[in-house]
Each structure stands twice: as C-alpha cells, then as structure tokens.
C-alpha cells in the first residue's frame, strides 16, 4: 500500500536518519574534507528520501544508504578530489608491524600516542578501493558480505583488500611512530 507523504517522512526519520553519523563519517573519509562531506551527505540523504519507496522495509538500511553515498561520490564528487593516494599498497602484504614491535611493545601501547589526525590522514591516503573497504570494516564494523554489497566487489576481494589496507596502514603508522620517537626502528 503506498505511503502518505507524512508516513513516508516519519518512516525515513525513524529508519534512515539514525544512520546519519555513520553516513557522515564515511563521507568524511571519502572526500577528505568536512565541507564536501556535508554536501555529499546532504545529497545522499535527499536521494535516499526521494527513492525511499524502493527501500524494502526490514532490509539493511545502513548498507542501502552507504551504497547511495558511494555511487553519489563516484559519479559526482570523486573527480573533484585533489589529493591522490600516497600510501604504497603493492608491497604492503609482506609488512608485519607485529614482527617489528614484538620485542619492544608487543601490546601495541604506542598506538595510544598516535594522534587522531595522523591516523585519519593515513587512512585518507590509501587508494580508493582500499580506503573504502577499511573504513566500512574497521571504522563502521560492517561484515565482509555487507561491504561486498555496498562496493560490488566479491567477498574474497573484500578480504584481500582489507588485509592489504591494514598492513599498509600499519607500515605508515610504524614509520610515523619511529619518526616521532615512540618506538625504535627495527631493521628487517
């Protein structure tokens, strides 16, 4: 049965709007800029509201919103993004942070010394497909299947991107921690 305008609005407010913080955080990592992230979120939520009749009640509304966000970003925002990735992913797989710090700091206490901005910048510098996978998993707690649904990549690809993204991020944070004197460099 079609919803009245009021019913639609209240269903949207009840089901979609609680995910606004998630949508905003992901948008921030996609765009790298708060002002652009706000525009992207606003566009996403308006599109979602206008196509609310296509959303099946009871299905995963967060994944549905993030799919709209991702498509909107790719089609309308990505070309404007100035910065390219600076983290090298190609050799990330062989890096193991645990092996580097195992003797000095096996519990990873130095993580606490790394400031938020440095972590987020390192995430932002990952290549797009690795960044989005890591953000959806490690920052928003989505399952491999949910990430596959949002990104359109097979689950096996999600798994391998996540592995490489985490290792690349660890290498970057290791270099930073060494530079700041939080830990000592260990030769390979």
């Amino acid at each position: 049965m079609p919803q009245t305008a009021d019913e639609k609005r209240s269903a949207f407010e009840r089901e979609a709007l609680p995910h606004l913080d998630t949508v905003y955080r992901v948008a921030l990592r996609f765009t790298g800029e708060p002002a652009k992230a706000q525009d992207l979120v606003q566009d996403t939520m308006l599109k979602a509201f206008r196509s609310w009749h296509r959303y099946e009640t009871g299905t995963n509304v967060r994944a549905w919103l993030l799919t709209i966000l991702r498509n909107t970003f790719i089609n309308e925002y990505r070309k404007e993004k100035q910065r390219g990735p600076t983290v090298d992913i190609s050799t990330a797989e062989t890096f193991s942070l645990f092996d580097k710090v195992q003797e000095e700091d096996p519990e990873g206490r130095f993580f606490d010394q790394i400031i938020d901005d440095e972590v987020l910048q390192a995430v932002d510098d990952l290549p797009d497909e690795f960044r989005e996978t890591l953000v959806l998993s490690d920052m928003e707690g989505m399952t491999y299947q949910e990430i596959a649904d949002v990104t359109g990549a097979p689950v096996g690809t999600v798994k391998s991107r996540l592995f490489r993204a985490r290792r690349a991020l660890q290498r970057r944070l290791y270099d930073y921690a060494v530079e700041m004197g939080y830990i000592k460099r260990r030769s390979p």
């Binding site: 709007l17 606004l20 955080r25 606490d112």
Partner: peptide, 24 residues
C-alpha cells in the same frame, strides 16, 4: 585503536538540521 579513532566524528548538528528541513 582504529575503531576508536573514528567514533568521535559525528555529523554536525547544523547538518542534521539542514537534512530535516530538506526532507520536510
């Protein structure tokens, strides 16, 4: 550690207000 570093960033109140008005 990764999860904790992103959680602090919530949508600004003015953005929430704009979206409410927009759909209204």
């Amino acid at each position: 550690f990764l999860e904790a570093r992103s959680r602090a960033q919530n949508a600004p109140p003015e953005l929430k207000k704009r979206i409410f008005e927009q759909i209204l």
